[in-house]
Each structure stands twice: as C-alpha cells, then as structure tokens.
Design a protein around this nucleic acid. Structure first.
Lengths: 157, 157
DNA sequence: GCAAAATATTTCAACCTTGAAATTTTAGGC
DNA sequence: GCCTAAAATTTCAAGGTTGAAATATTTTGC
C-alpha cells in the first residue's frame, strides 16, 4: 500500500510549510539587502560579483562558465555578463584551454584574489553580526535541516 | 560588566552561522527558481507580480505605493514598474485619493482578485510539494526561529 | 571523412532591481 | 498668504536575471 501523497497527508502541515517558506524568504531578503548595502558602501561591488569571486576563490585552478552557472544556480547568460565586468575590473581572466576552443577557464587574478580575501573577512563578520541572535545550537540544527533539504532536492532533480 | 560583543564571543559559532547563511540562501534560491518556472509556465507571470498581487489581496481596501514597497522589502521605483505592468494587464487599478494628490490607492480589480486566488491555490500546493521533506514539527520550529529573527531585526532597525 | 547531434558559450529582448535625482504636492513657520 | 521643508511618487541609468535563439566547436554514427 502506498502512502498518500505528501500534499494530501495533512492540511495543517502544509499551512505550516507555507508559513515557513514565507518567513524564510523574508529573512533571506533582509540579510541579502543588508549585505548588498555593505558590499556597495565598503567595497564598491555587488552581491553577484561577490558570489562569482567566492566560487573562483575555492577553485584556484579555475572554472568553466558552465561550472559557475551550475554552482551559483544562475543562468549561463547571466554569468557571461558578470564575468565580463569582472574581467574589465581586472579581478578575473579567461584563459584559453587547449583541446577545446568552445570553452575557456575563468580564474582569479592576483588582484581578484586579494580583493576577495578582504571582502570574505568582512563578510564573515557581517554575517556573525546579522545572525547574532541565532544561537550556535540553533544554527547547527537549522543548518543540518537545510543541508538535508538540499541533498534531497539534488537527488530528485 | 558588559558581555563581550557577539562577534568575538566564540569563533566556532560564527563559522556555524556563516554555514547556515549559505545554506539558507541556497535553499531559498532553489525554491524560488522552481516557483518562478511554474508561475511562468502555468500562469504566464512572474514572482514579483505574484508578490504584489498577494500583498494587495490581503488588503482589499488597497495600499499606497510606499506601503507596498515597505511590505515587499523592495525599492519605491521598483514597485512603480511592476504596478504599471499590472495595470496594463488589468489586474490592478490606481484610485485617486481625495485629500492628497501625491498619492493613489492601489487596489486589485475583480480580474486581479480572481487571478490571484487561482495562483494562490496552486502556490500552496507547490510549496507543500517542494518542502514536503520538512516535517510538520521541523517546519514549526524553524518557522518560530525565523519569526524571532525577524522581529528582532525589526526592533533594531 | 562527413553530416548530424550534442556541447559550451554568447547574444538579446524583456523584465526586475537599486539608488539617486527630479517632480509634484502638502505641511509648517512666520 | 508665502517660502521652505517634508513627503510620496516617478524617472532614469546601470546592473542583474531569465529563457530562447544564435554561434562556434566537438563528438558520434555511419
């Protein structure tokens, strides 16, 4: 016997999930907005640029455009524009890859790496400050839940 | 004696908060992306338009542009554009308010109200489906945490 | 080898988003 | 009653975002 589909199982649970989603989205927007302001004020940059630098910082050997797009959960065309601007600013380079002329490896420059290191340090402090009310215990629990949510999602899609 | 500032209190807790933030942001993006796709496919609309309709649906007497902006956590100029397009589509009207010619009350039309009701029904099911792995118990706990986070934020800002 | 399918990326139009400047109207001080 | 400040909104430029179409290259099947 199959279990009934989740969505019909218990109406109250679904209302609770809806409330959860709305609050999660609002919390994310509040924090995101604050980070955007601070990145602009203190480093004259944007959140998407920060995200790209962050991804590249973890992969010193570089990433393909499609790697970036998949990792950041944004479209290919989007990454093109952001990387273009980062190249103009001198924080990133596109290196030719012999063997496949369709692709190029995107890598941080020295300047980009140094710049990101400074931003990351501030960023960590900002998050500590913005999420200061969340206890270490709560943070751990919530974090585990969200990780489970995501791996589950990845497996199904 | 004052307690030490949160950010210096315990480095491990801050790492945990940083991890939490990253996971929260990713979860929000995954769900948001899926909602965007479905709203487009099934109702030929966008998330920001849905958000505006949703806000207006809860306030049948209408809202000022600045009310919408504050409630949705987006800029004034942003709301102007979205409402303009909703007016063009016939889902929303701007009514003159006697007494103050700077402002106008934005309200749902009959069509807008009916349209939103249909979308809201689907939306609730989608969320139930997307967050199906989160137990009712977890949802409630998480939801309470996020609510506390937000009221705390509101009080400080 | 070559045509066709698959892959990686860019381009583009439409929309979303912000923050700052401009516009319009109202409220206050005198 | 004026003049100035305040308030609500719109306008605008720059950038972010998507999805679809276009481009360029590589791989596959035969």
């Amino acid at each position: 016997m199959d279990a009934p589909p989740e969505t019909l199982e218990k109406p109250a649970a679904n209302k609770e999930r809806l409330r959860l989603w709305i609050r999660l989205l609002r919390a994310a927007r509040v924090v995101e907005g604050e980070l955007r302001d601070r990145l602009k004020r203190e480093f004259d940059t944007t959140l998407p640029r920060f995200d790209v630098l962050s991804a590249l910082y973890r992969q010193p050997e570089g990433m393909l455009m499609s790697d970036l797009s998949r990792f950041l959960l944004v479209s290919n065309g989007n990454v093109t524009g952001i990387v273009d601007r980062l190249v103009t600013d001198g924080f990133v380079v596109r290196a030719n890859r012999d063997g496949d002329r369709r692709t190029s490896i995107v890598r941080l420059t020295e300047a980009g790496s140094a710049r990101f290191a400074a931003m990351a340090e501030a960023h960590e402090i900002w998050i500590a400050e913005l999420l200061g009310e969340v206890s270490e215990e709560d943070a751990r629990r919530l974090s585990v839940m969200l990780k489970a949510f995501r791996s589950n999602w990845e497996n199904e899609h």
